[in-house]
């Protein structure tokens, strides 16, 4: 039982990370209907920025996280302006290929700049106490991570639903043309969406590094895909869906890792993809999504 509980808590932690990344996917998709394949790599860039802020500039962790969030947000906006904006009216396929290309660009640029050998993220959690559950212990950072992620999501929700700008975002994602006619500055809203999504990815990167303190240019790929699956699971384009999907996927994955015999350990990644396939087969609009009706 305690094993189950610790695994559950681990699942919540990784799930919180997926949820934060999934929010970026879902918000961008909601507004410009683009799967931003580079989103996972933005998280990777966030990890590098946090790393340099922490170990080269000697900033404390919370400042390093803030710097990383700001830096990644700027990068996200720049990417959108340079690569995606010219293709707003282009075909889905062109935009999608561009997103793939941006993902490659980030990975390979980082590889040339920082080499492919992994760097170790300094331990910031050494002095933190652990909490024991039965006969196993969980570092308090796990709980802090979960709490921080949830707090951030609550703030995001309040922002989107209560503020004028947040409502404008919802309006744009509902109908961009109509929103534009209502006098909403759509370009600004899109940039803001990229900024928020990227900042959340950077924050997720910092949380990720607490548990997996390795930084390398391809580190964003897997969490990126999984977070995307989380977004689809919750219902792509729906903000609360991304949160629910993220936590759910984290728990599923954690349980799979815990209860699938270690001989098949490599296959645990496949479980996540199985979830994707099942969602697409059973309810492609996701847990919280309504079936999409194209307007003809």
């Amino acid at each position: 039982m305690t094993y189950f509980i610790t695994q559950f808590i681990n699942g919540l932690q990784i799930g919180a990370i997926y949820a934060l990344i999934a929010l970026g996917y879902t918000m961008v998709y909601g507004i410009i209907k683009l799967i931003n394949f580079a989103h996972g790599d933005l998280m990777m860039v966030g990890a590098y920025i946090a790393f340099f802020a922490l170990s080269n500039w000697g900033l404390p962790i919370y400042l390093a996280a803030a710097v990383s969030m700001v830096g990644t947000a700027i990068l996200g906006v720049v990417i959108d302006r340079i690569a995606y904006k010219p293709l707003r009216d282009a075909s889905r396929l062109s935009a999608l290929i561009t997103a793939i290309a941006v993902s490659l660009l980030l990975q390979n640029a980082c590889m040339l700049l920082f080499s492919s050998s992994p760097r170790r993220f300094p331990t910031v959690t050494a002095n933190l106490p652990t909490i024991s559950i039965g006969n196993s212990t969980v570092n308090v950072i796990v709980f802090i991570s979960i709490a921080l992620a949830i707090a951030l999501m609550i703030i995001l929700n309040l922002f989107v639903n209560k503020t004028r700008i947040g409502k404008a975002m919802l309006a744009v994602s509902e109908d961009m043309r109509a929103a534009q006619l209502m006098g909403i500055n759509v370009d600004f809203i899109v940039s803001l969406t990229f900024a928020i999504g990227s900042a959340l990815a950077a924050f997720a990167a910092v949380l990720y590094l607490f548990s997996y303190p390795q930084i390398e240019p391809y580190m964003g790929a897997m969490p990126g895909i999984k977070a995307f699956i989380a977004a689809v699971l919750g219902g792509i384009g729906i903000i609360p869906g991304a949160m629910v999907g993220g936590f759910l996927l984290g728990i599923i994955e954690s349980m799979a890792k815990a209860y699938i015999p270690s001989a098949f350990s490599q296959v645990t990644d496949a479980v996540v993809f199985l979830v994707l396939i099942l969602v697409l087969l059973i309810k492609p609009s996701g847990l919280m999504g309504k079936p999409e009706k194209v307007k003809v």
Binding site: A83, L87, A90, S94, I97, T98, A101, S103, L105
Partner: peptide, 15 residues
């Protein structure tokens, strides 16, 4: 540099 160049090529082509 291959992948880097490819990615830039792709973006430029698409735009």
């Amino acid at each position: 540099y291959r992948m880097l160049l490819y990615s830039i090529l792709l973006i430029a082509l698409m735009i």
